[in-house]
Amino acid sequence: MSLRTLRTLVAIAQYGSFVRAAEAVCLTQSAVSLHVRSLEEDFNAPLFDRTRRVPVLTEAGHRAVERAREILSLYDGIASELGDQGELTGRLRLGAIQTALAGSLPAALAALRQAHPRFRVMVNSGMSAELAIRIDAGELDAAVTTEPVKPHPTGLVSAPLYQEGFWIIAPPGMESSDAKSLLQENAFIRFDRRAWAGRTIDTELRRMRLRVQTEMELDSQDAIIHMVASGLGVAVIPLSRRELAKLPGLTCLPFATPQAQRTVVLLEREDRPAGRLAAALAEAIRAQAGDEAINE
């Protein structure tokens, strides 16, 4: 048994086929098959059900994948634990929602790079629900997301970073309208309900018994803001105070009473594969978030 064979096993479980796993770990398909046979001989147990056309893990295979992830997490974390004089070294595969990319995250990453030149962060963007699935699959070490909303993968843990309020945004010149009138009497540009923020908005609209006239449903907050600024409707989006101040002269009112809030968190697997690296990133983000930060 070697670390490379364990990485192959985890890749098969992650990508669902020997072919895609081979591409991910830069091996031939025959080499991947040899790795599986080697592990099955070492463990004296079949890891895949070979009566199926696609690789399906046996019960023993599921246990082996779980242990392999734990072993690889411990090994990959060694570099981050051995930095000279407290220096952070290693790589963090990070996911982030769009509001984080437009908010505190870039400044936090810049501060970390200056303090720890050998600490590398690879950033991918996406919606919270999508990023949670990628963490669960082992594609990401951690992600800056909104607080999990069911359904979501089990086995994930979150640490709070900062809070954002939900705001009704409308074209300029509508300041005299109340919140209820804005939402019911204008075309509504809805935040995609596949996103956790979109589900939160939808739940609150139902609680308030407000019927809206949905004409668009978008997954980009920037796109929603541009649509509203062009006079095409009103919307509800989460914003930090810093982002709120940058809006191009739009009408802004708090959404719900009391104002609906969301918590932005650092999401990880329970075994916390990124360890000290993720913890350092969380502290850097809180430092940049200012009075909206949530300190543990």
Rank of each mutant, 00 (worst) to 15 (best):
L3I: 01
G198K: 11
L239D: 02
E268F: 00
M174K: 10
R199E: 14
Q163K: 12
E59Q: 03
A13C: 11
Q184P: 07
S220G: 06
A223G: 14
Q261G: 02
S73A: 12
I225V: 15
G95R: 00
L156C: 10
I224N: 07
S33T: 04
A293N: 12
V54T: 15
S38M: 14
G198F: 07
A229R: 08
G138M: 05
N295G: 02
L39D: 02
V36K: 01
F18T: 01
V32L: 04
L205C: 12
G173H: 10
E130Q: 13
F18P: 00
P106G: 06
M216K: 12
L92P: 01
L232M: 10
T146E: 12
R207T: 13
E268R: 03
G83L: 04
P55S: 14
E23C: 05
R286G: 02
A45M: 11
I133N: 12
A100S: 15
F166G: 08
A279W: 00
H62F: 04
M216A: 14
T99N: 11
L34M: 13
E87Q: 14
R207H: 09
Y75H: 08
R4M: 09
Q85S: 15
Q29D: 05
E164Q: 09
E292W: 08
E70G: 04
T203G: 11
L247T: 11
R269A: 07
E70A: 08
L3E: 06
I294W: 00
N124W: 01
E175D: 15
A245W: 12
V264N: 05
R4Y: 05
G83D: 06
S128P: 06
M227E: 09
L109A: 10
A64P: 02
H35I: 00
Y162Q: 04
F255A: 04
R242A: 06
G95C: 06
R241L: 11
S128R: 09
A45D: 07
D42I: 09
P55E: 07
V10E: 01
L74W: 00
D76M: 05
P55T: 09
Q85C: 11
